[in-house]
Amino acid sequence: MSRILTAGLILFPFIGLFLAFPAAFSWDEAFGNTVIYVIILGFINVWLGIGTAWWLMFTESRWKTSVEWFTFLPLFIPVMASMFGMYIALAQLGLVGTHIGVGLVLLVTTLPYSIRLAYNAMYVIGRTLLEQTLMLAPWTRFGLVLFPLLKETIRTIVLFSTVIVLSQFVLVQLIGAGLVPTVTTRLYQSYAGNDVSLALQNTWVLILVPVLLYLGLGGLFGIWIRLVKGRLQ
């Protein structure tokens, strides 16, 4: 009974959407912007998240504690609190209302979570096992060992950063100054304008982007693992 109740609660928000799937999607600049942000930010989050977590895991620098503290600072302070600071800094640099400005604030918002996810995964794998990989050539180390070991973490980082990017409205609206449309900003506009058809279309994009990303990454990673393991047979 409790399982049915739980399933019902999880599916409840989607029931209305399944009943009203849009007959057709009309192309909007916001779709392209959103997909590009998701892909670029997913890639940068994986790259910087894993790189920083690796450094934190292995460094003996006396700055380690300070760097760790600063890196995780955005996890403690709400984005809304740091948003205005970012706005002032980006305005000074002339980046307000630009794609770079919006991309930068979305990266600042997502990166601490990515570092934490990667660091936790490495912590569970263990420093001694990771050290064993240092005896292997870089390509072997990453391709045959680190990537397969961290593939689920990489997928989580990409999806987590995607969901955060897709959830940001105020930040994108403020830094984008209304000049950088994304699916989220369009969605709020369609709510305000009471445009049900547009709202439905953008909502489905919000659902489909992470779902397709999840399936796509799963397929790609599966092919990769089969290929590299095939080289060991």
């Binding site: 096992l129 064993q132 292997l136 072997t140 070991l149 393991k229 060991l232």
Partner: peptide
């Protein structure tokens, strides 16, 4: 490495 078989660990 837990994701590899015994032999793959050595082949590596």
């Amino acid at each position: 490495f837990p994701h590899l078989t015994v032999g793959e660990n050595v082949t590596l």
